[in-house]
């Protein structure tokens, strides 16, 4: 029984490890910090895994928990005065970011940070793994219509600031 539970959790870990890491990275912009936060989120998820065995429910719960933990870590980093160090480092380029201007990437992150949370999470989640509106709505626990309107507003603000 316990072995089955552990195997099931490892399957969820394989499925959602990159998602949790990218959610944390969208807040922290630091690879090491993002991995620490994602790992902490998985440990907490394992403690409550008997209540979260449904895959869809587990993904949504993990995303929200990772967001919250990342925000806590961000506040702690700011309190320690390491924000200058974090902001001074260029974001780690992804596999397909080699042909993207780093300055434009930095402006994009600034524009995302300026968004209110309710507009920020839909645009980030839709960019991760190419989630559609239905998946983003399930992850955030809000209606699809709400996600659509928030995505529209977020994209309009980003395009205006990045012109």
């Amino acid at each position: 029984m316990d072995e089955a539970l552990l195997r099931e959790f490892e399957a969820c870990l394989t499925d959602t490890a990159t998602l949790a890491f990218r959610v944390a990275y969208s807040v922290l912009r630091q690879r090491e910090d993002a991995e620490d936060v994602a790992q902490d989120a998985f440990v907490r998820a394992y403690a409550r895994f008997s209540q979260l065995r449904d895959r869809g429910r587990f993904r949504a719960w993990l995303v929200r928990l990772t967001f919250r933990l990342a925000l806590d870590r961000q506040r702690a980093v700011r309190r320690r005065g390491n924000l200058e160090r974090a902001a001074g480092e260029p974001p780690a380029p992804g596999p397909s970011a080699s042909n993207v201007d780093p300055v434009q990437l930095s402006r994009l992150w600034d524009a995302i940070d300026a968004l209110p949370h309710k507009l920020r999470w839909p645009i980030v989640l839709s960019a991760i793994h190419g989630h559609d509106v239905k998946e983003v709505a399930a992850l955030l626990g809000v209606p699809e219509g709400t996600v659509k309107s928030r995505l529209f507003l977020a994209r309009r603000r980003l395009k205006e600031q990045l012109r």
């Binding site: 959790f9 490892e10 870990l13 394989t14 490890a17 990159t18 890491f21 990218r22 990275y25 969208s26 690879r31 993002a34 991995e35 994602a38 790992q39 998985f42 440990v43 394992y46 974001p91 780690a92 380029p93 992804g94 596999p95 397909s96 970011a97 993207v100 434009q104 990437l105 994009l108 992150w109 645009i123 980030v124 960019a127 991760i128 190419g130 994209r155 980003l158 395009k159 990045l162």
Partner: peptide, 25 residues
């Protein structure tokens, strides 16, 4: 904008990330 967003969030964890999480769990 889509291309920029995809490039910004196409980062991946280190190859040892899953192994570390599994060991911690």
């Amino acid at each position: 904008l889509d291309r920029l967003l995809e490039a910004a969030l196409s980062v991946s964890p280190s190859p040892t990330f899953r192994a570390r999480v599994a060991a911690r769990v």
